[in-house]
């Protein structure tokens, strides 16, 4: 195991977000704050509590994930796309480092950033609403699992993309809408039966539902089912990554 190399990539990636601190941390925190102000404080005060939880508190887990999902994908995809685009990837390809170690560096750094971001949004939310965290260890576990899964997905995206447009289109046009429709602002139990059934095809529903369960101890889908779905997504991403490295797809001609 080339620990020096994993460390080098990991630190390089974290340094990259230090250079782009506003984009990586400040901007998601600002947009989340706006959601709290609008939906939590302004509109939320007119809404009835859901399962005994105030609306402002109810949306917290979903809002954390909204940022964590998009940032995991963006960070990891930019992390690997940028060296491909600028040509500096030659150094990684010529280094005595395995595909797994490359992945560990890039995905590890992206997931770390997402978890830091999630924690910052969690703390920011505390300023606006009071809420419990019933299963803190599960919350941390889910956050880690989700961050890693979506960082892996971002890594795949960064390899697949052949332009900056494709990099931005997936978080913007796929992840963001699915997260909105995945129950960030409502419980899927509030939907008409047909729509509720349709929502179950949205994988992000399970993530938000499980994450919300760790906060408030209630769920629309059984937490174990959600955990299985999350793990399945992780396995799917790992499988694609393994295939990429086996074939050298978009890395080695």
């Amino acid at each position: 195991m080339n620990f020096h190399a994993v460390r080098a990539i990991y630190l390089f990636e974290l340094a990259r977000s230090r250079r782009t601190l506003f984009q990586s941390i400040a901007s998601p925190v600002l947009s989340t704050t706006l959601y709290f102000v609008v939906f939590g404080a302004a509109i939320g005060s007119r809404m009835q509590p859901i399962n005994g939880v105030s609306y402002g508190a109810f949306i917290v887990p979903g809002l954390i994930l909204l940022s964590v999902l998009t940032e995991s994908v963006s960070n990891a995809s930019f992390g690997i796309y940028l060296p491909r685009f600028t040509g500096t990837i030659y150094e990684i390809l010529s280094a005595p480092i395995s595909a797994f170690e490359v992945l560990l560096g890039f995905v590890g750094a992206a997931a770390t950033k997402s978890m830091i971001l999630g924690t910052i949004i969690f703390l920011t939310a505390q300023l606006f609403v009071s809420f419990d965290l019933v299963h803190p260890l599960w919350a941390l576990g889910f956050l880690a699992l989700i961050s890693i899964t979506f960082a892996l997905f971002g890594f795949i995206l960064g390899l697949w993309a052949d332009g900056f447009e494709k990099l931005q289109i997936i978080p913007l046009m796929v992840i963001s809408p699915l997260t909105f429709l995945g129950g960030t602002f409502y419980s899927i139990d509030m939907l008409p039966p047909l729509w509720r059934k349709a929502a179950l095809f949205n994988p992000i529903v399970y993530l938000i539902d499980a994450f919300r369960w760790t906060f408030f101890d209630f769920a629309s889908v059984r937490p174990l089912t959600s955990l299985t779905m999350t793990l399945a997504m992780l396995v799917a991403c790992v499988a694609v990554v393994v295939w990429i490295f086996r074939t050298g797809y978009r890395l080695r001609s």
Partner: peptide, 23 residues
């Protein structure tokens, strides 16, 4: 090609290279 991450400092860049090669 002049492929180098232009946002890094010279020192960080050579430190990264050394680490990448497992030293």
């Amino acid at each position: 090609e002049l492929s180098v991450n232009v946002f890094e400092t010279v020192w960080d860049s050579v430190t990264f290279s050394r680490g990448l090669f497992g030293k």
